[in-house]
Nucleic acid binder design. Structure first.
Lengths: 350, 350
DNA sequence: GCAGAGTGAGAAAAGCTTTTCTCAAGAAGG
DNA sequence: CCTTCTTGAGAAAAGCTTTTCTCACTCTGC
């Protein structure tokens, strides 16, 4: 019956070829075919080779759905974010994806905005598709996603977002990051360092400000005011106007709460004819390449290592899925200072 | 046997509850339980209600893997991109995801950089997981992804990337977009319009330049030089230096190839004391919010409607998956002009 | 020549759901 | 009272792979 049948074309169009097809073509049973392809069971080397060759020729590809059903493991995880694919999610995703792809795990990306309905929709879809786990990420360390993930029955990891109680979370160490920045300025001999940052309703604003104050105290420097505003360039320019409109107490360094503010600060200073870094050094936060690298001069800034954070989160999720116990709690991962040109000569020994 | 058994806790820990559990608990067969939950088959309203109630109480959730295996449809699609989750992929994804989530379809996001090995890895993973289709997106309209998707045996849609032969693709209409920009300037009475754009090796550079020349010709205006450089702010500033260093032939409008160039142009003009839009009008391309909205003045720019493009691509893929025939070919979707303040008063009637 | 060991390969179950038959019991009609 | 129709519900197959048994056959050693 298979005698006169010619396989036409190249693409395995229509119905995908199954293990049964391979077995029939090779004249063996399903069991034998399966074992041959998985290098398991006992059989002649010749039989094994023949089956493998047949599979190759037919373009056989095992059906992952069937495998998953049997193994109770889908090699699939869901990623939730409310950062409409934004600045923070991006490197985070890159790290997560990198950690998982090498283990054959694919990632469902789900943007839930801040909409509980949309969140529930995506979570339901994930659970029905039997994801092995979920990674929750966000755009703010101090905001929860609009859905409760604590009772789902699958492992959940939080990355760069406020976790539920008793959860496993990875966040950036903002105090440490701010420390790096301010200590850098101190080491460069700056004495009057001010902090221009975002709105008071952000937790990170207070964390970074606290570290800023601590470093000043440790260095025996007078505390300068912390100026809170928006996360925008225009606030940076405005802050410069405030700081430099009066002749006294002008700073010789400005530590900014993010790169956009820093960029505004740099622009404001340039427009006033104040040299950066000659007269005033500027440090940013976030290392948002497109802003930091194109600033004039290019911006020295704090990088939160989000890709590394994502990778860590991904690997930990895999451990969890494999049943290894993981201590709950919040893990802070260190930031890193990216030195460009807005602070002048780097201090000795760095 | 089930008599003394108390369900403890809330979370369905360990083994998820299956249809068999529901059937046993309700005292019916699997078949009846299935039909009850799907509102199919015949049975007393009372039986149906009892089964549904039981399912609800037990927190039953059908196993999507089993359903997919049977239906030959996984309600899953893969998205490939080489735009390391960048500026273009982002809105594209948002649109695609939006179109699909309402149909219960989840999206595997796969960043393949420009690495054929990584691409093959992801494509293999997708095929094993039996995605219903694939959407290929990129960061450039004139570059292929590093893998051949034409013989995969699943439907493929290309969005914002160079398609393989005989494929279905959605791209932005860059000529049309450039037209919108230049016609806007002409309508505002600008007479000497120059075009500052990116490197000649980009196809869009030539498409947009051609449209620019065509509109000038139609308006009876003298053709000004097309200045090709980099997609950077510094090139925008440099171009201004070139254009305004000599006193003659100064433009009264500049059409920029992207928003970063436009931003550089605006900064360059401001630093020369040239009023925007008073003396010179500026238009950008891409509508990259963070750049366009924070420019001084905020930038009028061309938006490629990438979210709409993604939505269209998603819906078309669904048609394809449902077996509806779709004519191959490249579909160009219109751009849209976002008017902010860098061109002055919008022309009458708009 | 025969018991026991080893070897190659197949049968069958499991994983979960959906759908098509099949069947038994009760109701309606002659 | 017997036949036919209707109705409620279950049995079984299908979708694809993996794994554990089981079985038949061939050596090996005595």
């Amino acid at each position: 019956m298979a005698e006169g049948m010619e396989r036409e074309g190249i693409a395995p169009r229509k119905r995908p070829v199954t293990l049964r097809d391979v077995a029939e073509e090779a004249g063996v049973s399903l069991a034998t075919a399966s074992k041959a392809l998985n290098d398991q069971g006992r059989m002649t080397a010749e039989t094994r080779a023949r089956i493998q060759e047949t599979a190759r020729r037919l373009g056989f590809r095992p059906n992952g759905l069937a495998q998953s059903l049997l193994r109770q493991r889908s090699f699939t995880v869901g990623m939730l974010t409310n950062d409409t694919y934004g600045r923070f999610s991006l490197p985070l995703m890159a790290g997560i994806s990198e950690a998982l792809v090498d283990n054959g795990v694919s990632v469902f990306l789900c943007n839930v905005e801040d909409d509980p309905r949309l969140g529930q929709l995506h979570v339901d879809a994930m659970l029905e598709k039997r994801v092995d786990g979920i990674i929750a990420t966000g755009k703010r360390l101090d905001r929860r996603l609009p859905i409760d993930l604590s009772q789902l029955g699958v492992p959940v990891i939080y990355a760069f977002t406020e976790p539920d109680a008793d959860a496993i979370a990875f966040v950036s160490d903002d105090e440490g990051g701010a420390r790096l920045a301010v200590e850098h300025l101190v080491a460069l001999g700056r004495r009057r360092i001010v902090h221009v940052t975002g709105p008071a309703r952000f937790a990170v604003v207070h964390q970074r400000a606290a570290a800023y104050r601590a470093v000043l105290a440790e260095a025996g420097l007078a505390e300068a005011p912390v100026m809170m505003g928006n996360w925008t360039e225009s606030w940076g320019r405005e802050a410069v106007d405030i700081l430099f409109s009066k002749p006294a107490d002008r700073p010789d360094a400005i530590f900014c709460g993010n790169d956009q503010i820093a960029r505004g600060v740099i622009d404001g200073l340039r427009e006033r004819g104040i040299d950066v870094p000659g007269s005033v050094a500027v440090v940013g936060f976030d290392n948002w390449e497109i802003v930091a690298a194109e600033a004039r001069p290019p911006l020295t800034t704090v990088d939160m290592n989000l890709a590394a954070l994502g990778r860590e989160a991904g690997l930990t999720l895999l451990s969890l899925v494999d049943g290894k116990p993981v201590e709950p709690g919040i893990r802070k991962l260190p930031c890193r200072l990216v030195v460009r040109q807005s602070c002048g000569r780097p201090p000795d020994g760095q």
